[in-house]
């Protein structure tokens, strides 16, 4: 019997895999470990302590930036997911027509355009509006985040819709369900895992954003990532590590919840 080709049997495969693995996770592990350092240093271990976590929690800037980040992420993710759901329904529950591909491209364009370009464009655009309206609240950041979150929410929802058997909706209509009831009792429950995936993805993407936020924010509107970026220009203490570790923990929690929710569904 001829031996099948297997990547795993190639010489050096394991070594390369291990190097990549360490390159990815070792820095993060080091970061997390030094969050618990008792001393000031990021490279000399002086014993275990939770002082930097306490310090982070007592830092008013950190708390304000965190709350702002969450506010923006929650609103942006919810609005983006609602919009993405409607867009996904509109682009899959229709006979293919001319211009549909263009619509896909239009919805997904934020993925293609370099973020810095969008950031500059929004900076110029919003500064005009700020002058005209005099409003300079969180609305700009939320609007910007919503816009770039839509394609991320759209992709899993559309994937789910495309895999859904259209006959199910037809069966509902056959059993006297109006279009709205069909959506409410059949499409939505089956689409739910896709919507949750979209929501979480949008939430994480918004939480993580630096470039657009940095350009769009007004004075005193730091989110957690832009606050951290600002701090890096000064002397760094393990407080940064502690904040990063908490941030990481939140991310892991979201992904875990998402994993279990998705697994439970069909």
């Amino acid at each position: 019997m001829a031996r099948q080709f297997s990547v795993r049997r190639q010489t050096g495969f394991t070594t390369i895999a291990m190097i990549c693995f360490f390159a990815l996770y070792l820095p993060i592990a080091v970061l997390v470990i030094y969050a618990f350092n008792a001393g000031q240093s990021l490279s000399i271990w002086e014993g275990f302590s939770l002082r930097w976590f306490v310090k982070a929690f007592e830092n008013q800037h950190v708390i304000e930036a965190s709350i702002r980040s969450l506010q923006i992420a929650v609103v942006a993710a919810l609005v983006a997911t609602a919009a993405a759901t409607m867009a996904a329904l509109a682009t899959t529950r229709t006979e293919p027509y001319r211009g549909l591909t263009l619509k896909y491209a239009f919805i997904n364009q934020p993925l293609m355009i370099p973020e810095i370009v969008t950031a500059v464009a929004l900076l110029i655009f919003f500064s005009r509006i700020k002058v005209w309206t005099g409003y300079s609240g969180l609305g700009y950041l939320i609007a910007a985040h919503t816009a770039f979150c839509i394609p991320f929410a759209y992709l899993p929802i559309r994937a789910r819709l495309e895999n859904m058997d259209l006959t199910l909706e037809r069966a509902a209509a056959d059993l006297y369900a109006t279009p709205w009831k069909t959506f409410r009792y059949v499409t939505l429950p089956l689409l739910w895992p896709g919507i949750l995936a979209g929501l979480m993805l949008a939430f994480v993407i918004s939480l993580d954003d630096v470039v657009i936020t940095e350009f769009v924010k007004s004075a005193g509107q730091d989110t957690l990532p832009t606050y951290m970026l600002g701090q890096l220009r000064r002397a760094i203490t393990p407080e940064m590590n502690a904040i990063s570790t908490l941030f990481l923990l939140l991310s892991i929690c979201i992904v875990t919840v998402f994993f279990f929710v998705n697994k439970k569904r069909i």
């Binding site: 058997d165 006959t167 199910l168 037809r170 069966a171 509902a172 209509a173 056959d174 059993l175 006297y176 369900a177 109006t178 279009p179 069909t182 059949v186």
Partner: peptide
């Protein structure tokens, strides 16, 4: 949904 007619689908299409 207004027709008093029901269908048994080839793929069953159970929810």
């Amino acid at each position: 949904f207004k027709r008093p007619v029901n269908t048994v689908f080839q793929s069953y299409a159970l929810f």
